[in-house]
Each structure stands twice: as structure tokens, then as C-alpha cells.
Amino acid sequence: MFNYVIRRLLYSVPILLGVIALTFLLFNVLQTPEAAAAMAIGSKAPQQAREAWIKSRGLDRPKTEQFVKHVKNLATFQFGTSWKTGRELNEVFRQGAGPSLLITLPGFLAGLLGGVGLALYQVYVRKSLLDRSITLFAVALMSVPTVVYIFFLQAVGALMLNYFPASGFDWRGWETAKFVALPIIVMAIVNLGSDVRLYRTIFMEEINQDYVRTALAKGLSSGVVLGKHVLKNGLIALITLTVATLPRLIMGSLLIENFFGIPGLGNLLVMAIGTSDQPVVLACTYLGSLLYIGGLILTDVCYALADPRIRLS
């Protein structure tokens, strides 16, 4: 097992290097120093000021030298300071991680539970009219843009019922729950449609296995077989596929955090796009990839723990 983890970690090193090279290509090669300067201090700034800016950032140095610096900075998490607010980015990220996790994790778990429950129920009533209706409903859920969910839930939960605050965030112990409740609900619903369809496919594959027939032949009720045997076996496939959807989590949380005024990483990125704050965009891209690669390693390890055959190959 230890060997497997080490091998898996080593395998991701070239990928990480590739990601760093890609970000360099985007931000240092495709984007000219002049364009970067215009973004940072404004295109109306005097020529000298822009040239001085390029010099101070080392953007006039040879590309190879810039690349070495780029790799060194990213590998040691030296993201520098924001162009617009001048704040240390590491500090900003540390503050934003808490609120972000407070939304994405519960939202993701709630969505997972809801999706698995609905999918299991679909398998329970499989090939009936109800099953087909739920599938159609799931396709309809998939076809609604995220923004519309946000508008709708805010209008109902905050403006009509007046139960939740329309936006904002504050660390206040249990009171915090009121701020994050609506974002969490949106988070859970946004991916529900595609998740239900995915989980249904997984469970439908399990239902045709021999062990299901044996269990049913033993006289176990259909509910027990589904809730215990099928769920357990389906979970292995489910874990792999859910981690593959984790990047979508970031996508959802970008809009949600921004709209509900949650001071998380997603909101930070949206603000940075609005103000052309390149270091933040670069750092978010890099950190997002790092999280994703880490998530993939974790999935593979979980997978290997659940199924010992994996480790051999």
C-alpha cells in the first residue's frame, strides 16, 4: 500500500510541472508585458510608468529566466501580492478558505446524499413510469442555468419568506448557519440533475450482478438488498466518479459565493476578474489544479483500499 501511494505521488509530479508550464505559457508568453502593464496600472498610465512597472516585475528578462522564477514561485507557494489591493495573497487565501469550505463541503455532502437517495429510489421502482419521470426531471434540472437557481432561491428564501439574509457573511457561532443555509441549498441542487442520472447508471449496473440475484433468492426484501448490498458495492464506482466532478464544485461556488456575498476563494476570484487582478487569477488557477490533482490521488488511494486488486496493476 505504501509503495502504491508513493508511486501515485511520483506519477503526479510531471502533471504538476505541466500545469505550471501551461500557466507560464498563458500568463507570460501569450500575454505580452505591455498588456500586463496596461492591466496592472491602467492603459492611460504614462509610457515611462508602464516601462518601469515591467522592469520592476522582471518581465523584460529572458523567457528562460522568467520561467525558472515562475516554477520556483509556484512550487514554494510564493504568490506575491495582489496588483490591486497590495495584500499578501497567501494571507488572503488563508482567510478565504474557511468560508469557502463552509459552503462547498456541506453543499456537496447534501447533494451527494440527495442524489444517492433519489437514484436508489429510481432503481427500486425501475423501468416504471415514475422512474422515467424522475429521469426526465433530472434532465430538466440539468438544463437550468446556475444563476437562475440562485435568483429563485434568494427570491423565495430571503425576500419572500424573509427567513434568511439575502447576502452577507459573519463568524457568529451558530448564527453563521443562517448566512450559509441558502448557498448550501443552491450548492446541493445545482448538480443534483446530472448526479442522479450518473448514480442511477451505476446502481443499475450493480442490480444485474449475480450477488443481487443470490440475495433476492435467499428471501431478502428488495429494500434491504438495495440499501445494503447494492449501495455498498455501488459506492466504489461512485467515489471515483464523484471526485471527477469536484472541479464543477468550484464552478458552482464561484457564482454562489459572489452572489450571496460569502468572502471565500470563489468570490475572491470573481472580484479579481472584475478588477483585472492577474496574480489572483494565476494563483487560483494553480491552487485549483493542485486541489484537483490531490483529489485524484486521494480517490485512487481510497479505491485501492477498497479493492486490493487495483494495487497490483
Partner: peptide
């Protein structure tokens, strides 16, 4: 695999940003 390691939305934003 490298390209897919950057979450899609972040890559989209970065490319359009540049």
C-alpha cells in the same frame, strides 16, 4: 491529463482573461 488537471472553469477564465 495535464490540461484536464486545471479545473475547466478556471482554465476558461484564465484563457479569456489573457
Amino acid at each position: 491529463t495535464t490540461l484536464a488537471s486545471i479545473p475547466e472553469i478556471l482554465l476558461l477564465i484564465a484563457i479569456i482573461f489573457v
